[in-house]
Design a protein around this nucleic acid. Structure first.
Length: 477
RNA sequence: GGCCUGUUGGUGAAGUGGUUAACACGUCGCCCUCUCAAGGCGAUAUACAUGGGUUCGAGCCCCAUACAGGCUACCA
C-alpha cells in the first residue's frame, strides 16, 4: 500500500485558532495512523495577508502540540519549495499547459466589465457567474492582446452539462451540477495562482494522497477534480472536516480571542490537553474513553468516525480535560505553567523557590489551568485581609475569640516552624480551649485567611509564615 | 436568490430498523473533610428540529418544511 501523505496548508496570518489547529491534528492523526507523512505547505498566494514570522509561529505551535512536520518550508523535503510564493513558475507552467490542452483560456476582461456583470446579475437576483466572454476569442485575437501586453488571467474551462460526483471520507457522496461551476480563475493577473489552482498542483506534485481540510471546500472540490482529470492525474482521497463553532454558534475567528491556541497556552493550558480536547471535537473513539495522549490518538484514530455536524468549542470541558492532566503533573512541570502568572501578579522577590513550589503544590487540585493560581492565592500576598459576610458571622459566635487567643499563644511558642509543630499547636489549642472540629479549625482559618475554605490548614499556616500568622491573629475582628 | 451540508438534553457525543436512547462535561445532592478542591456515589435535564410516508416496528430509510452553517472573489 502506498504511504499516505497529507498536508497542513495554512495561510501565514500569524494567528492560529483552535479550529485551524484541529485541522492540523486530524490530518496528522489520519496519516500517522498508517505511518504516513505529514507536511506543511504555506499558502501565501494572497500577498496582502502575509505576516512576518508566521511560518515560525506555525512550526512552534505545532511543535508544542507534538505535531512534527516530515517536510515543510523550514525543514525542507524532496518536493519543495513548500511555500507557494516560491513556486510561481510551476503554476505558470501548468496553467499554460492547460491552455494548450484546451482546458483553460486567457481572459482579458477588465475589472470594470466584471463589475458591470456582477451588478447586472444582482439586479436580476441572479447568481453572478463569469459569462465565458473570452473563451470565444479567436486565436488571433488572443495573440494580438498578448502581444499588446493586455493584462490577463487564466480561467478554467468548465463543462456546462451533466454532474460531477466524488466520494468524501466524511460526507459520503457529493454531487453538484456542472452548470453551476464557474470558469474560475487559475492564474491571477499578478502572476500568482489562486488557491483553487495552486492547491491542486501542489497536492499532486507533493504526492498528497489525503486532502484533509475544512468543509468550506466541499462545494468547490468538483472543480479541483476536473483539474486533476484535465491533467490526467489521480484524484486524492478527500476528508472534509466539520467546522468548530464558538459559543455564539458562529465560526471561530480572530475576534473570538480565547479560541486562540497561543492565548490558551499562555494562560497555562497544557498543549497535550488542548490536543486531547480538540481531537474530541467532531470525532469520537469506538469506546467511551476521553483521555488520550497523541500516540494513543494516532493508534485509535479512524476518519470514518469523524462527525458531519459542526461542534461547539466549550471551555468548560477543556478545563476539565486540562485539570485532569494537571493533576498528574510533577512539581516542576506544574511550576512551569504557574510560576509566570504568579510572578506577573505578585511580588515574589522575598519568596524562595521552595516556598513557591510548596504554594503551587497545595493548590494543584484547585486549579484547572495555570493562570488560575493567581485568583486562589492572593491571601498569601495581601497585606490586610478582610473578614466579611458569612465569615464575620461565624466569628461572632461564642468562644471564638478565646480559641484565637489560645492559638496565638501556641503559635508564639513555636520555635521550629514546621508543619508538624503547627499541627501540634492546633492539637494543643483543641485541649486548652476545649473546642474541636469546626469550632477549632474554622475560627483560625477565617482569622488568618479571611475565607471559610482553602487547602489543609497546617499547610496554609506554614506557608504564610510565623510573622504573618501572628499579625493576622492579633488583628481585632 | 441558487447550490452543498447539517439538526440526539446547556455542551461534546454513542447509536447504523426492535435499547429503559449509552457515556463524558456542566448543574445539583450525598459521602469524605475544619472547609474548599480532588476523589467516590447518586440525581438532573421538555434530547432524537417539525410534518408526512415506508415498515409489524423508525433517532436510524424516503419526501417535504423549518432552522443553522458553508460556498457562490483576480480570499483561502
Amino acid at each position: 500500500m502506498e504511504k499516505p501523505r497529507t498536508r497542513f496548508a495554512p495561510s501565514p496570518t500569524g494567528f492560529m485558532h483552535i479550529g485551524n489547529l484541529r485541522s492540523a491534528i486530524f490530518g496528522y492523526l489520519l496519516v500517522k495512523h498508517d505511518g504516513g507523512d505529514f507536511l506543511l505547505r504555506i499558502e501565501d498566494t494572497d500577498q496582502t495577508r502575509k505576516v512576518e514570522g508566521a511560518v515560525e509561529f506555525i512550526y512552534n505551535t505545532c511543535k508544542l502540540c507534538g505535531l512534527e512536520f516530515d517536510e515543510g518550508p523550514l525543514n525542507g523535503g524532496p518536493y519543495g519549495p513548500y511555500t507557494q510564493s516560491e513556486r510561481l513558475d510551476i503554476y505558470k507552467k501548468y496553467a499554460h499547459e492547460l491552455v494548450e490542452k484546451g482546458e483553460a483560456y486567457y481572459c482579458f476582461c477588465t475589472e470594470e466589465r466584471l463589475d458591470k456583470l456582477r451588478k447586472l446579475a444582482e439586479d436580476n437576483k441572479m447568481a453572478f457567474m463569469y459569462d465565458g466572454h473570452c473563451k470565444r476569442l479567436s486565436k488571433e485575437e488572443v495573440e494580438a492582446k498578448l502581444k499588446a501586453g493586455v493584462p490577463y488571467v487564466i480561467r478554467q474551462k468548465m463543462p456546462k452539462e451533466g454532474t460531477s460526483t466524488y466520494e468524501d471520507l466524511v460526507y459520503g457522496k457529493i454531487t453538484v451540477e456542472n452548470r453551476i461551476l464557474e470558469d474560475q480563475i487559475l492564474l491571477k493577473s499578478d502572476g500568482y495562482p489562486t488557491y483553487n489552482f495552486a492547491n491542486v498542483i501542489d497536492d499532486h506534485l507533493m504526492h498528497i494522497t489525503h486532502v484533509a481540510r475544512g468543509n468550506e471546500y466541499v462545494m468547490s472540490t468538483p472543480k479541483y477534480n476536473l483539474l486533476y482529470d484535465a491533467f490526467g492525474w489521480e484524484r486524492p482521497i478527500y476528508v472534509h472536516l466539520p467546522m468548530v463553532l464558538g459559543a455564539d454558534g458562529q465560526k471561530l475567528s480572530k475576534r473570538n480571542g480565547d479560541a486562540s491556541f497561543m492565548d490558551l497556552y499562555h494562560d497555562g493550558y497544557l498543549p497535550e490537553a488542548i490536543v486531547n480536547y480538540l481531537a474530541l471535537l467532531g470525532w469520537s473513539p469506538e469506546n467511551n474513553e476521553e483521555i488520550f495522549t497523541l500516540e494513543e490518538l494516532v493508534k485509535v484514530f479512524d476518519p470514518k468516525r469523524i462527525s458531519k455536524s459542526p461542534a461547539t468549542y466549550d471551555v468548560k470541558k477543556l478545563n476539565w480535560v486540562n485539570a485532569h492532566y494537571m493533576k498528574k503533573l510533577d512539581i516542576d512541570a506544574l511550576y512551569k505553567i504557574t510560576y509566570p502568572h504568579l510572578k506577573e501578579a505578585y511580588d515574589l522577590s522575598n519568596k524562595s523557590d521552595e516556598w513557591i513550589k510548596e504554594l503551587i503544590r497545595i493548590y494543584q487540585n484547585h486549579i484547572s489551568y495555570g493562570k488560575e493560581i493567581v485568583d486562589v492565592t492572593d491571601l498569601f500576598f495581601k497585606e490586610h485581609i478582610e473578614i466579611t459576610g458569612e465569615c464575620k458571622e461565624f466569628m461572632e459566635q461564642e468562644g471564638v475569640t478565646n480559641t484565637i487567643q489560645v492559638f496565638e499563644h501556641e503559635m508564639e511558642a513555636i520555635t521550629d516552624w514546621t508543619i508538624e509543630n503547627i499541627n501540634q499547636a492546633i492539637m494543643n489549642t483543641k485541649e486548652k480551649a476545649n473546642v474541636k472540629g469546626k469550632m477549632l479549625y474554622m475560627p483560625i482559618r477565617i482569622q488568618i485567611t479571611g475565607q471559610m475554605h482553602g487547602p489543609e490548614l497546617p499547610d496554609t499556616i506554614h506557608l504564610l509564615g510565623k510573622e504573618t500568622v501572628l499579625a493576622r491573629l492579633q488583628k481585632k475582628a
